[in-house]
Design a protein around this nucleic acid. Structure first.
Length: 891
RNA sequence: GCGCGAGUGGUGGAAUGGCAGACACGCCAGACUUAGGAUCUGGUCCCGAAAGGGGUGGAGGUUCAAGUCCUCUCUCGCGCACCA
């Protein structure tokens, strides 16, 4: 296809200019700002400027990518374009904009590639970053590249390790509800060390964890989906291992409460709430019929206690062994073996048929002293609540299924509202057959029974969470090593000890074989010289998970080159705190854009770390991300998810080569609302590309362009300098605009500005198109109007806007020029057209002077012949006049 | 099963409760052209020659007025899912 305009010369030209002039550099308080920087000229500031004299900040952040070997995907630039448009818009509004980019580069694919090829992950990672950087730069985003970060850079992960030490050296004080330095923890005289270790926010656990054989590592709960690894979809099994955990459960309440203060979509907040999974209920103790240790259950429906007809323990429950009777012993052992053989996947897939075995033991229901049988069944999870339940088959679907399977008694103890079937009724009703609860509505019954249990010492009100502590270690090479050594004690036991801050960064050892060892130890164990320290101490050989680096990268961006601190307090306060000028009420990152895939992983982990850092006085706000938008994914042109197998993957490089970056950016925004899932259409790219061609022709003298093209074709090699030979069209003149032209311009300013504030980029672009469709018919195009149009176009199609602006003006760059202001007076119409309806149906349109009274509008409407025709002989019952809007005549 | 979100032309999508279909794709016709996969002009929800009528997944309701608000229902997408 014939090129609409020489984007292939224009785009690299401006990208080079922006880069060499550091046009998009964001200035920290105290930075020395050169007087010739466009920021300095715009704001009349230069030299070292303190925070209170800098303009209001705007921190707009993308979720930084994992630089995979596949290169950039069309999904990446969707969010990046949206943030870039807003970054440019806010610069034009006069804000100091922080808009950074970096690489979340620790990760499994690089390591697996290394295992297959022997290529060091550092090398593949660097190669991938190079590709990503080139691709992202070719889109003309206004990032401040001086703040580029890479999570695998020792200058970066030094501080990831430093934050780990902060966690390690802290405990959560339930009294204050805050993390505090471990020194403040009151310890018993004996076993003080062990006590402290049991309270740290980073601690060692020996519990069963998800192990993925195929990946050769353990995974966090959040990384396991339907019994398979989130990465690769490999089966996982449960196995007890020594692992590092982070005490995120201590923050469950704070993480829930914090959601109320931030501007995220309701669905995203809901996902986090579901993951945290708070439920209020009661713990109830059931004593054993034959004596022995009582069994505690958790229930959200203590009001149904009279309906408990049996009890179920998880097969893994600690008491199973001791309560099982000799007769049942063999069956129990067999069942436990069967359950442990099943992967989690099988357990969920076979969820329909309930299985279980009677232990032979009985418990006493504390409210009525009934003997109820104790079973074990895998529908009760060891990891939730107390791992034991009281079964109320009358009012719980699962218990009912189980009771029917094994012919256990079912008792109705909640009367459903009239009409509903009572057996299996799950909602709130009125207690029945429940002694002192009978007749009480469910909420009251809950209160009464809980109080009764507390009084008798048989139970208490509790809150349970689905959220588990965060499994924080991985058996990988390509991750941050833990700044921990294991020291042998006098008893021969090894004890963990933190490295001093001065020992950071702790670099991973050089290796050539990245597989786990034959004994199942992590790959780092292969580096014997690195692991074994003088005096018999050994380094921790696990590494941190990929999430570690992304938990705090937004903080590093505020002060990315600081060698002394993870980020300087002044920078952190300026960019993340409430502004000193008081002009922003948005704590943290003003706007964060990224995909939903991180809804419960990165976004929950980050909030957790940030809360801890806040408690420890390292950051000035408790929540990191004030506003968050999830961009919708882009499907293939067949409406299916893009995948290599379907062959519907669109490569951004191809689109860029054929239509240019501006067209690509514009198309991604024109497709539809940012949050929506939408299919790709290369035809659609052609549409916006044609639009950019029309913009070009709005400004350019055709004859000079034809000559330019001929010389380019003749000259063989294409010469960017020749762009100067393209002349401005003669119809662009330095003349005052007509009222109609001003109206077109201001309608465009109004719409684009409003849409920017509402993140409606698709309709903003259509407003730009409307301007162009109109302006193309103008015989004279006033330079001032055309220049303002370019300022509106600049955030969307910056290269073309800069090039055209440079042709009609001497100003060096558009990037820092003030956003055009909309003047309502210009748009004021002296006449308005008003639709007239009869009985809600459009019948005519009348034109009246603006500002006339409703009575006059009504008279004009009734004067219409067409309207009279539809009224006919009927009596007019009512006339609704909405000034400037519409008239409705009811007959 | 539970929780979110969405259903509007052939397509992507527009519409503070106030003219449904902006803008664009596609298609049709025309102009300019040696040519057109360039550009420009006009047309394009459905039925109807027109007048007019119908129309935002479906059924009700509120209102002078409903794509928009309420109730029920269907379909699709996403998330969670034996969480007691």
């Amino acid at each position: 296809m014939r090129r609409q305009y020489p984007f292939h010369l224009i785009e690299p030209k401006w990208q080079r200019y922006w880069e060499t002039e550091a046009v998009f550099r964001a200035w920290n308080p105290g930075d020395v700002i050169p007087a010739n920087h466009p920021f300095a000229r715009r704001h009349g500031l230069s030299g070292a400027v303190p925070a209170d004299r800098l303009p209001p900040k705007y921190y707009i952040l993308d979720m930084f990518p994992y630089p995979s070997g596949a290169g950039l995907h069309v999904g990446h630039p969707e969010g990046y374009t949206a943030t870039d448009i807003l970054a440019r818009y806010h610069r034009a509004l006069g804000r100091n904009v922080l808009h950074p980019m970096g690489w979340d580069a620790f990760g499994l694919p690089a390591e697996q590639y290394a295992i297959r090829t022997g290529q060091h992950p550092r090398k593949t990672t660097e190669a991938n970053i190079t590709v990503f950087r080139r691709q992202i730069k070719s889109l003309g985003f206004s990032y401040d590249w001086s703040r580029e970060i890479d999570t695998t850079d020792p200058r970066y992960f030094k501080w990831t390790q430093w934050i780990f030490l902060k966690l390690y050296n802290s405990w959560f004080n339930p009294a204050s509800g805050n993390a505090e330095p471990i020194e403040t923890l009151p310890c018993p005289a004996e076993n003080a060390d062990a006590f402290r270790d049991s309270k740290r926010l980073a601690y060692v656990s020996h519990a069963p964890v998800w192990w993925c054989e195929e990946l050769g590592t353990v995974l966090a709960n959040e990384e396991v989906i339907d019994g398979k690894s989130e990465v690769g979809g490999f089966p996982v099994t449960r196995r007890p291992m020594r692992q590092w955990m982070l005490r995120i459960t201590a923050y469950a309440e704070r993480l829930l409460a914090g959601l109320e203060k931030i501007d995220w979509s309701e669905s995203l907040k809901e996902m986090q709430r579901n993951w945290i999974g708070r439920s209020e209920g009661a713990e109830v103790q059931f004593s054993l019929a034959g004596g022995g240790q009582a069994i505690t259950v958790f229930t959200t429906r203590p009001d149904t206690l009279f309906g408990a007809t049996y009890m179920v323990l998880a097969p893994e429950h600690a008491l199973v062994e001791s309560i099982t009777t000799p007769e049942q012993h063999a069956a129990i052992v067999a069942y436990k073996a069967e359950v442990s053989r099943k992967s989690d996947l099988e357990r969920t897939e076979l969820a329909h048929d309930k299985t279980g075995v009677f232990t032979g033991a009985f418990a006493i229901n504390p409210v009525n002293n009934e003997k109820i049988p104790i079973w074990i069944a895998d529908y009760v999870l060891a990891t939730y609540g107390t791992g034991a339940i009281m079964a109320v088959p009358g009012h719980d679907t699962r218990d009912l299924e189980f009771a029917r399977q094994f012919d256990l008694p079912v008792r109705v103890v909640v009367q459903a509202p009239a009409g509903d079937e009572s057996i299996g009724f799950l909602g709130d009703g009125v207690s029945a057959d429940s002694d002192f609860l009978t007749g009480l509505p469910t909420p009251e019954a809950k209160k009464k029974i809980t109080a009764w249990l507390e009084e008798k010492g048989l139970g208490r009100k509790t809150v349970n969470y689905k959220l588990r502590d965060w499994l924080f270690s991985r058996q990988r090479y390509w991750g941050e090593p833990f700044p921990i050594v294991w020291q042998p004690g006098p008893d021969g036991q090894f004890r963990h000890q933190p490295l001093p801050e001065s020992a950071l960064p702790l670099q991973p050892p050089p290796l050539t074989d990245f597989k786990p060892t034959s004994t199942g130890e992590p790959p780092l164990a292969r580096a014997v010289e690195w692991v074994e320290l003088p005096g018999g101490a050994r380094r921790e050989t696990n590494t941190m998970p990929q999430w570690a680096g992304s938990c705090w990268y937004y903080l590093r961006f505020t002060d990315a080159r600081n060698d002394h601190e993870f980020c300087g307090p002044a920078a952190e306060k300026y960019w993340m705190g409430t502004e000193p000028s008081g002009q922003s009420t948005r704590p943290g990152v003003d706007l964060y854009v990224g995909g939903t895939e991180h809804a419960v992983l990165h976004l929950l982990y980050s909030r957790f770390w940030h809360n801890v850092l806040y408690d420890l006085g390292c950051v000035s706000t408790p929540e990191p991300f004030f506003k968050l938008i999830n961009q919708g994914i882009i499907l293939g042109d067949d409406g299916q998810k893009m995948s290599k197998a379907r062959g519907n993957v669109v490569n951004p490089d191809d689109i860029l080569g054929e239509y240019g970056a501006d067209a690509f950016r514009l198309y991604e925004m024109f497709m539809g609302p940012l949050e929506m899932v939408k299919p790709w259409s290369t035809k659609g790219v052609e549409g916006v590309y044609r639009f950019l061609g029309r913009v070009w022709r709005l400004f350019i003298d055709e004859e000079s362009e034809t000559k330019f093209e001929q010389s380019q074709a003749a000259g063989g090699a294409e010469n960017p300098a020749a762009l100067a030979d393209i002349k401005v069209s003669a119809v662009i003149k330095d003349v005052p605009a007509t009222p109609a032209q001003l109206k077109t311009l201001h309608a465009c300013i109004k719409k684009v500005t409003e849409d920017m504030d509402g993140f409606r980029f698709n309709t903003a672009i259509s407003a730009l198109m409307i301007f162009v469709n109109d302006a193309i018919a103008w015989e004279t195009r006033p330079a001032g109007v055309m220049s303002d149009f370019l300022k509106l176009l600049q955030p969307f199609a910056p290269h073309l806007a800069e090039e055209l602006r440079a042709k009609i003006s001497d100003a060096p760059t558009l990037a820092w020029e003030p956003w055009p202001r909309f003047d309502p007076a210009v748009l004021a119409e002296d006449k308005v057209e008003i639709p007239v309806q009869v009985n809600g149906k459009l019948r005519d349109k009348i034109v009246v002077a603006a500002g006339v009274s409703p009575e006059e509008i009504q008279a004009a409407a009734l004067a219409s012949e067409k309207v009279q025709q539809f009224i006919g002989g009927n009596q007019v019952k009512k006339i609704v006049v909405v000034p400037k809007r519409l008239v409705n005549i009811v007959v």
